[in-house]
Design a protein around this nucleic acid. Structure first.
Lengths: 222, 222
DNA sequence: CAAACACGATAGTAATACTACTAGATTTGT
DNA sequence: ACAAATCTAGTAGTATTACTATCGTGTTTG
């Protein structure tokens, strides 16, 4: 775990959970084991019962922390974006030159933690894979407007905004900074998913190539 | 309905259905009503029972056509891409100049059919909305590799390939044509979704702006 | 014209998402 | 110190969902 983060607590929007999973050992094992299980089974095949069984607890205990399995997914992916925002801010704040700043931002977005890399009880490597495999399912539901009003997507939007502002600072006339940034934020994960499952949809097979593609896309566009 | 298409039958990959829904009136009403219902309820809240009730049939009758609700979604969205490929090929084949060709391709991708515009019993307007709301759920599942091997995504990949080839013809040295095209194919729908539900993630609020953004992105990139 | 078959309906089952309730442990107020 | 209040997790449900096995009827075909 990065020494810088040992003091930091990731605080997820309270409307996502019923009881803070950080507040108990059961809560923590719900979180860490669900990352493992959702990654293994896929979100559709993942059930609260299976989770309860694999941590030696019961369904109702888990439902005390999360209203339903969708909220649990939302928690995990929100957690990721909060963590990513820290990394983004820390690693770009002292860079003044635009191109370097953008390169760094993209590199942070693309960086997949090493296997077994953890933050507390959370396996960052598996969480990253979970984001590439499941992220759109958090907001592509009928509850999106409601959840959005509760501030569930604030962190994600703020990340998009931070990178957009780098672009606007460089070129105030550029009309579509948010569109461009939210597009590449999606694409970075989607393209890695394609590389693994639908390779004929992409040429950038490695993370290096994807980084190269994304960076030059941004630099040429603005 | 476009006069050109009155003779054409859209033939979806056979591994998607158990019995061709085009072959009976029940099949046709399963398809047309499911578009309506999935759009109305969202795919998660949509059930085979609800579909059966609203067409005055039964669950088991529907299961004779589709193995499960995921396959039904796959059918609808595959149907859309087959239809789109026709439109793409017809409207770009006689254009020789690159920029015009790309503009036309993007325009076809972005074009949302008018309300009540239909093709046979299929409401094209609602189907387009369904694609923007649900498309990633077709391939972001644990069955993706299996389905891919059965050729379920061939049409989508072929569309990506056709547009990629336009780019390669213009600039054979460009390294990421498929990545660029699959990214914009995703983005065109995702950005329309954002415009409606998470507007702070985008600046392009109208279809015209999105078209403008996408076109200049491609032209500047290659 | 009867045997084969296609078709849709009925009536189930197992699993899932979720809830109401209960018992035990911990904290708190006096 | 200790009883009342509260907090926590577990037991035992229910309603719904996804899916299946079987049945009867109408249609086609040898």
């Amino acid at each position: 775990m990065d020494a810088l983060f040992t003091q930091i607590k990731i605080s997820v929007n309270e409307s996502i959970y019923l009881k803070d999973p950080e507040s108990s050992t059961l809560g923590k094992s719900i979180v860490s084991e669900s990352i493992h299980l959702i990654h293994e089974l896929g979100f559709e095949q993942f059930t609260i019962k299976k989770l309860a069984d694999s941590i030696g607890s019961t369904e109702s205990s888990i439902y005390r922390y999360f209203e339903n399995k969708h909220k649990l997914l939302l928690y995990l992916i929100s957690w990721y974006w909060i963590w990513l925002e820290y990394k983004l801010v820390i690693s770009t704040s002292n860079i003044s030159q635009f191109e370097q700043k953008i390169r760094q931002a993209i590199s942070v977005l693309i960086h997949q933690p090493e296997e077994h890399e953890t933050f507390g009880s959370i396996n960052l490597h598996k969480l990253y894979k979970l984001v590439t495999e499941e992220a759109p399912k958090t907001y592509m539901t009928k509850e999106v407007d409601d959840e959005n009003q509760h501030g569930v997507y604030l962190v994600y939007k703020r990340i998009c905004n931070r990178i957009s502002e780098m672009i606007v600072t460089e070129n105030p006339a550029y009309a579509y900074p948010h569109t461009l940034v939210s597009m590449i934020m999606d694409a970075i994960h989607r393209q890695q998913y394609y590389a693994e499952h639908l390779p004929s949809l992409c040429d950038a097979k490695s993370r290096e190539q994807l980084s190269d593609f994304t960076t030059s896309l941004v630099l040429k566009s603005i």
